[in-house]
């Protein structure tokens, strides 16, 4: 009997460029960086508000600088991507039962998007007043 000589394929570091779905997946995962930045940005805003009206004005001025706006526009795009992918995948990961019957996954999307709208509206109302 001869010994087998197996060929073991190796995955390249850039595997996530090989297929569109893989690239979209990695972009989805990279949204985590922007979630992090959004939290940091909001904390900076809170610090400015805590620091008094002058600090708050300084923050508003800084947030209007071109690079801050560009960064935040990119962040906004990734956050929306995160929201849409996360909500769309939720029914696949969760089984909801009502009166012993499984709710069809598609029917879960409605309440989730509605919740997003309601939460967003409440937040905007709180901030704008």
């Amino acid at each position: 009997m001869t010994t087998q000589r197996l060929y073991k394929p190796r995955i390249s570091v850039l595997w996530w460029l090989s297929r569109r779905s893989y690239t979209l997946f990695v972009l989805r995962e990279l949204s985590s960086l922007f979630v992090g930045w959004a939290v940091v940005y909001l904390l900076l805003l809170i610090r400015a508000v805590a620091g008094g009206p002058v600090a708050y004005q300084r923050f508003l001025h800084w947030s209007a600088s071109p690079w801050a706006i560009v960064l935040n526009v990119v962040t906004a795009a990734f956050l929306l991507y995160h929201t849409v992918t996360f909500i769309n995948l939720t029914p696949q990961a969760m089984v909801v039962q009502v009166r012993g019957r499984r709710v069809p996954p598609r029917l879960l999307l409605g309440p989730l998007y509605l919740a997003w709208l309601v939460v967003s509206a409440v937040l905007v109302w709180l901030v704008v007043g």
Partner: peptide, 26 residues
């Protein structure tokens, strides 16, 4: 599993392994 979801798209028999895995994580 990081929920890429490609397994469920590849399955020729309509099985949803990605869903099974996420449900099992819970």
């Amino acid at each position: 599993c990081t929920f890429v979801g490609e397994c469920s798209r590849a399955c020729p028999k309509g099985v949803d392994p990605a869903g099974a895995i996420q449900r099992y994580k819970l």
